[in-house]
Amino acid sequence: MQSSRLIALIPALALALSAASAATADPITERQALMKDQGRAVGTVTPIMKGEKPFDAAIVQSALKKLNDDAQKIDAATLFPAGTDKGDTTASPKIWEDNAGFVAAIEKYKADTAAAVAADPKDLESFKTAFSQVSKNCGTCHQTYRIKKD
């Protein structure tokens, strides 16, 4: 009797555990994975930017889409909650000192990636224009809101 009730509890317990782990997933790991993913997208178009490979509309559009998808996932409140400047992170305290500025920088990035996808570049020149509009955000945001550690 007792044991059967316990067994019945197991699925509920497992469900509760997995929900808890999703909610407490480390925001530092999560945001770093998201950044790395965007880096990979940049990597797929770098040979085209450098002129090492010919322009390919399909490759660049899929990279821009990837960047846009990732950009839309960046949420300051969940990925950069207060206190997560501590630990294995290069996030600058400025994120929380000037949170409105940080949120505005993220919004701008989202708007610029969406615009680049909408532009759907069909030649190298228009791709370079669209991509530089997107990639400027990397430098601007990292200039203020990231601290290089080692």
Binding site: T46, C138, G139, Q143
Partner: peptide, 28 residues
């Protein structure tokens, strides 16, 4: 050497991180 020149021009490192801090301005 090409990686260094490209990083200075584009702000992207060979592992597609982007240069930040005061270096973002240097890239400009």
């Amino acid at each position: 050497a090409q990686d260094i020149a490209y990083a200075l021009e584009s702000g992207f490192t060979p592992d597609f991180d982007s240069l930040g801090g005061s270096m973002a301005d240097v890239v400009q």
